[in-house]
Design a protein around this nucleic acid. Structure first.
Length: 465
RNA sequence: GAGGCAUUAGCUCAGUUGGUUAGAGCGUCGGAUUGUGGUUCCGAAGGUCGUGGGUUCGACCCCCAUAUGCCUCCCCA
């Protein structure tokens, strides 16, 4: 049979896994440094945990898992099975007889579920980070898969804006360590968006307005105007919205203008949004490190799709590569309320690992050392030389040097080609001559140079590389 | 969920207005070269032309269905 993998999934080859691990490890270190703790949740959740949390579109995209043990069902259930199967083909495809579990759709809802279930053993504020794959029954496109990794970092149980400011620091620090250039973290507040909707005279349509202006980058102001009109916003309202989101200047300047506008309209929630942004940026100024090159930019047009956000929202982009956002997040006031735990505010951010990978790859910024995990290969000359080589290779490993011995005493040429293809930087030769002299010939593949050294010096040489 | 394009060797792609044995480059393998890789030269292997139907004397080519990839919309990461 012809081998294949399911639609929208990918194999990750050794070098790709190395590169992704490098990204995850870099981010993990930063998370830990800010006191966040690792959490993992099951690949599958009960369907009832997930349904209704991601909107109508989301429900459709949840990967349902067929119940196992169907043969153990009662006869009454079996009779219904055909009917249930028919229903399965209809929206929203969920019938308990056929499916009662589903694959994880994101990391946020399982996190909320976890917090509610473990509320009595957790110390609040609870900070956790989570890096796991998620699944969506979406139609695959470029940069869109049915299985992909998410990398989230959230804190619940604190309303302090210090959390927001620290998360901004985590972004800046992580991208600094990954050497991603020209990073901008756009920041806005849902409260400001709510204020804007009120000023436009369409307070109840904040979501419609949000969805429309979220597309500004993509379809331009003309497209947004059309979209707003289609969503029932009148011309006067549209003008007012445009006035607000087209504000530009320094962060302080924009916030000052916004404060004035909100003041004129006596918009309490909008003013609150401005105050929160000011406070967050003030904390950030105190926390920030001088070697971070990224910037923070107040952007009144930033909207973000997810509808559970209620406060500050952020989104990360890099101007170095033409690419959508590489991270985003925000505050949600009542996420755990869905599971019966009210009044627990949280704020979190997410790293778009796949896109970050693409950015770093495109800019050629992955460290060279990731290319091969193995530092040296010992050529196999067979016979007594092989025995000697086995001893040497193990001593190198014990000294912490990743080494492999070519397992077969095949033609020299073939062994060299293998080492070259594997990107192994050093080749060690232990033949009759070297064995007699108790020396090792070490060849640097990158320069083509070769020298004969005692084992101790070889170990030192390789350790210093 | 809607519309469009594509699928030929391991990879990137030619190809025939439907007509006997389907081609190239790269890669792979073997040899020149059994202690020196990237270069060079010689040779070889490798394809039921995505899958299943249909039209036809005859289909890689035309029609239908289906799978997968990509693009636009929707939505989003």
């Amino acid at each position: 049979m012809k081998p294949s993998i399911p639609q929208g999934t990918r194999d990750f080859s050794p070098s790709e896994v190395r590169k992704r691990q490098y990204i995850l490890q870099t981010i993990r270190t930063i998370f830990e440094r800010y006191g966040y703790q690792p959490l993992e949740t099951p690949s599958m959740e009960n369907l009832t945990t997930l349904m209704g949390k991601y909107g109508e579109e989301g429900d459709r995209l949840i990967f349902k898992i067929l119940n196992n043990g169907l043969h153990e069902k009662k006869d009454a259930d079996k009779k219904n099975l055909n009917e249930e199967w028919q229903k399965l083909l209809e929206k929203p495809y969920s019938t308990p007889v056929v499916t009662e579990r589903a694959l994880r759709y994101d990391l946020t809802i399982p996190f909320a579920r976890y917090v509610v279930m473990h509320q009595h053993e957790l110390a609040f504020p609870f900070r956790r980070y989570q890096m796991q794959p998620v699944w969506r029954a979406d139609r695959p496109q470029k940069g869109r898969y049915r299985e992909f990794w998410q990398c989230d970092c959230d804190v619940v149980g604190s309303t302090s804006l210090i959390n927001e400011a620290e998360l901004l620091c985590i972004y800046q620090s992580a991208f600094h360590h990954l050497a991603v250039p020209q990073v901008t973290v756009k920041i806005n507040s849902r409260k400001l968006l709510a204020g804007m909707a009120a000023i436009a005279g369409h307070e109840s349509q904040m979501m419609d307005i949000t969805i429309a202006i979220d597309k500004l980058d993509k379809i331009g102001w003309e497209g947004v105007t059309k979209e707003l009109h289609n969503r029932g916003i009148d011309a006067e309202g549209i003008t007012k919205i445009q006035n607000i989101i087209s504000l530009s200047g320094t962060n302080d300047g924009i916030l000052e203008q916004l404060a004035q506008l909100m003041q004129e309209h006596q918009c309490t929630i909008g003013l609150q949004g401005v105050e929160e942004l000011k406070q967050t940026l003030q904390y950030y100024e105190t926390l920030k490190s001088s070697d971070w090159s990224g910037t923070i930019a107040v952007d009144a047009s930033l909207a973000r799709g997810l509808n559970y956000y209620t406060g500050i929202i952020v989104e990360v982009t890099t101007a170095a590569v033409k690419m959508g956002s590489i991270g985003g997040g925000g505050r949600y006031d009542d996420l755990t309320g869905l599971f019966g735990l009210k009044g627990l505010s949280g704020v979190g951010i997410s790293f778009g690992v796949d896109r970050i990978y693409d950015v770093i790859e495109e800019l050629g910024l992955f460290p060279e050392a990731l290319e091969s995990g193995c530092k040296a290969m010992v050529v196999n000359f067979g016979g007594e030389n092989e025995t000697y080589a086995l001893q040497v290779v193990q001593q190198l490993r014990n000294a912490g040097i990743a080494t492999e011995l070519y397992p077969d005493a095949v033609k020299f040429d073939k062994q060299m080609k293998y080492a070259h293809k594997r990107n192994i930087p050093f080749v060690l030769l232990l033949g009759d001559e070297e064995r007699a002299q108790q020396l090792i010939s070490i060849k640097d593949f990158r320069t083509g140079t070769q020298q004969k050294l005692p084992l101790a010096e070889v170990i030192q040489h390789l350790s210093n590389e």
